Computed example of a mutant assay.
Amino acid sequence: MDFLQIFILSVVQGLTEFLPISSSAHLILVPVFTAWEDQGLAFDLAVHLGSLAAVLWYFRVQIAGMGSAWTRSLLSGQKSADSRLAWAILWGTVPVGLAGITMKGLVETEFRSPLLIAFSLILFGIALGVADFRRKGERTEYDLRWSDVLVVGCAQALALIPGTSRSGITMTAALFMGLGREGASRFSFLLSIPVTTLAVGLQLLELVQMPAGSTDWSSLALAAVLSGISAYLCIHYFLVFIRQIGMQPFVAYRIVLGVLLLVVFW
């Protein structure tokens, strides 16, 4: 892989991982439009490590508070807002974990169709637009009810379909349940931590089972750094952006991209 390919794929992963526009769709489509070869498992692992590092660093203070509060809730039963949020993140990850185990074969084969991506971009884009337009409240991630966690967690499982967007569908569900834009976004970002960690772990297991080959460690390191930087900037500026503008520009982008894909691949 040359520098241009590494740069584009890494930045695309970093930006789209947390924007509600589907990172998997963009990473599938970039090689389609550029005729580049598939970037491979090692590269996917590197860019996901970069985006994971970005969200961990951005929310490091909040994560530290949740970690200590969660530990106290286990050892002494002491409950707090931080411990409840930590449990919400863990329980909200269960549905996508179960779905990933049962649907792994479909996700890696039939679900990678450009037409399916197009329909997912449009359908779930419209859902995001409706949820944002009709949002019912301004609750934060600390105000989650268990019914909210169940709905958002089940919605996250739909993100296994390329084009859905993990961040997009979880933000949509959270908005419908009465969270504000920022609360929905922050909960979505925090939910990405266990999901991405699980994905990285599975990729690592697959990688070590593959035949040994030449690995360009400098390219992988560069990809991880570029992905991490772009993901960190994305999180920061996205939270600023939605306070003032909302989700509708992302809805419009999804619909336009989906229609374009239908025109090209129908």
Rank of each mutant, 00 (worst) to 15 (best):
F3P: 04
Q5E: 12
F7E: 10
S10R: 12
V11I: 12
Q13P: 10
G14Y: 11
T16G: 03
T16E: 00
L19Y: 15
P20K: 07
S24P: 01
L27R: 04
D38F: 14
G40R: 01
F43G: 00
D44R: 07
S51N: 08
A53W: 15
V55C: 03
R60I: 10
Q62G: 09
I63V: 13
A69G: 14
W70F: 15
W70M: 15
S73Q: 13
L75V: 14
G77R: 04
K79P: 05
S83T: 03
S83H: 09
S83W: 15
R84G: 02
R84A: 10
L85S: 08
L85H: 12
W87P: 03
I89F: 04
G92V: 04
G92L: 11
V96Q: 12
G97E: 03
A99K: 05
G105C: 06
E108G: 01
F111T: 05
L116F: 08
I117F: 14
F119P: 00
S120L: 00
I122L: 06
L123D: 12
F124K: 08
G125K: 08
K136V: 00
G137V: 01
R139S: 02
E141Q: 11
Y142L: 09
R145E: 05
R145I: 01
S147I: 06
D148P: 00
V151L: 15
V151D: 13
A157D: 10
A157V: 14
L158K: 04
L158Y: 09
A159T: 07
I161F: 13
P162L: 04
G163H: 10
S165R: 12
T170Q: 08
T172V: 13
L175P: 07
G180S: 08
G180P: 04
R181H: 07
E182R: 14
G183Y: 03
A184I: 15
A184C: 06
A184W: 11
F187H: 06
S188T: 12
F189W: 09
F189H: 04
L190G: 01
I193G: 05
I193V: 12
V195M: 08
V195R: 05
T196L: 13
Q203V: 02
L205Q: 07
A212F: 14
G213F: 15
T215A: 08
S227L: 13
S230Q: 05
A231E: 08
L233A: 10
C234Q: 04
I235P: 06
Y237N: 01
F238N: 00
L239G: 03
I242S: 01
I242Q: 03
I245K: 13
I245V: 15
Q248I: 12
V256Q: 07
V256Y: 10
V256P: 11
G258Y: 00
V259A: 14
L260K: 01
